[in-house]
Design a protein around this nucleic acid. Sequence first.
DNA 1: TGCAAGCCTG
DNA 2: CAGGCTTGCA
Length: 631
Amino acid sequence: MHHFPSSTYPEDRAEHPPSFLHDNTYNSSTPPSSSRSSGGSLISMLLQKTIESEQTLQESSAAYYNPEAHISFSALTSPRLVNHHSSTSSKSSSTTMEPLSPASQASTGASPNGAGSNQDWTLELGDRRQAKRARVENIIRGIAVSPPSPSVHCTHGETTPSNDLQSETMENKQESKRKQRVPQHQDLLRTGGASGKSTDEGHNLRKQLQTMQRLLGQLQARFIQIYEYQTESQEDVRDGTFSTDKEDKLLADILKYELSRAVNSSVDSIFKNISHTLFKPPQLHIKDGGMAETDDEPVFLSSHEPASSSTHVDSMSRLPPCSKSGMVQLPEIQTEALSLVVQKPASMTHPCSPNLTVKRPLHFHQPSLLYNHPTDLHEDHQVLDNLKHNGFHHDTFGGLPCRPTTMGLPTSEMVDLLWDPVKVKSKVTSRPPRSPQVHHPTATGHNMLLDSLGLPHVKMEYGSFQSMVKRTSYVLNEGLTTHHLKKAKLMFFYTRYPSSNVLTAFFSDIQLTRCIMSQLIKWFSNFREFYYIQMEKFARQARVEGVNSVRDVAVRRDSELFRALNMHYNKANDFQVPDRFLEVAEITLQEFYISISLARDSDPSWKKAIYKVISKLDSDVPAEFKAPLTT
DNA sequence: TGCAAGCCTG
DNA sequence: CAGGCTTGCA
């Protein structure tokens, strides 16, 4: 109960009633402008929707309330919109089920535009929607005008979807970053094309790109559809306070982002597919289920494979680290377009799935898609297969088959990634494996502290340090040593928000210039940052793992959370962490758990309330810490 | 406007 | 962890 073994994956989101709030949360914390989550969700959805597009369009009204609508819709729901809505809904819910955004409304099917009034309302807004649609189409046309050109002579930026639109929002940093990613792939394309025999490859490339254009066209159509639905909801909710220009701009921005991402993902998949082929062992095309009868199908095969072998996803940890029994060794080759091809919940459970990070957003935003199986993806798949024969060289894709960032992750990491792609970096790098033995049995004491601070690796500077301190003109980093850093970290176990008085008192061995004081403050700020990141991460993980009561949220010395913290602030593990710290950590974790459970995290500044609570839990730092480091 | 705290990124 | 940027407050 106190720690979260993180061995399960919530294949059934229904077990977590307020799950839609998490979807919300996800969106609000990672707005569409974020360039980090390079999922393939849209393109996958597109492929799915491609199959259904015609019927979907025909049954338009039904489609609007299709659960899938919420998926795409949530992608279109900016934090601003969410906030707007939640701020205007005065009644604070007693449960967490109150929708905070149109997205959640759609997801629950409890749209205010529901059955009865739907028709009238639609009629009233008909003209408006027409105009709106025209605008949207105009925007999209702008995007469509500059699709990834078949030309391999393109330069950076030229093939970025919607150049004109992007220039209109170039002040946005994220935007420009987004812009960079797509061309990268095109560079790859270019490189690959140049490395082979030009004519055939050019032809193949052209085919790929044409298909991609087609896919994008369908995606655009889908956006229009979604947007119309969004517009309807917005108009209904706001009752006339609709801000057309801003919405257009927002939409344009989102569209650009999603399209870029879609292209990106698509191209990514293509290349993965190529590498798949290049590295594919000869025996690969055998395999069960009969889906793979030709070389063109290993993707289907391999993506299904984990599903068939692990029926219930109850324990990721039980799965072998990187391959399944008796199956063809598909060594990390299966990087291929899972997102493009199939979305099965079980595929998530394969710890080895290199697509994990790519698929995550899809799974959380598009639960209904998880169970949709493509029926007519052959053509698109064919396109990918074509690319395989373009004569790319191995070195072009060296390292592609196995993505190092996700391949070796322990299951807890994977859950982690599932939940918070934004923090992937810190997670992957900040949780090194560590021996289970965590706390030191010896008591805290002056000698021990001093011993711990007198580490060998700083011994050399240590002698001269004293004299250096006496000279007053230090630049920041020369004044503060690793000793001080370590000391500060240990102090963090007592105080998360040290006052400048405390800092002055406890770092009296060094002349606390304004600069150094800022440095110390910055250190503690960094400490807190890490601390709260861990808290949020584990709180979310607790929810993922089905912890239903805050009473079940605890932090003990054998908790994963504690390990992570101890690892960070007490790396040498030679300091006995005070019990009080565990209490504070537990309270912090509970605060996060509660806030997340109540969907408070949809508020951009939701953490501040927690910070306030935690800032009152500081203890006095033991006097021993005042002793000069060199004693 | 200036500062402090937080956030983001490398 | 540090630097730069943003945000919130007085």
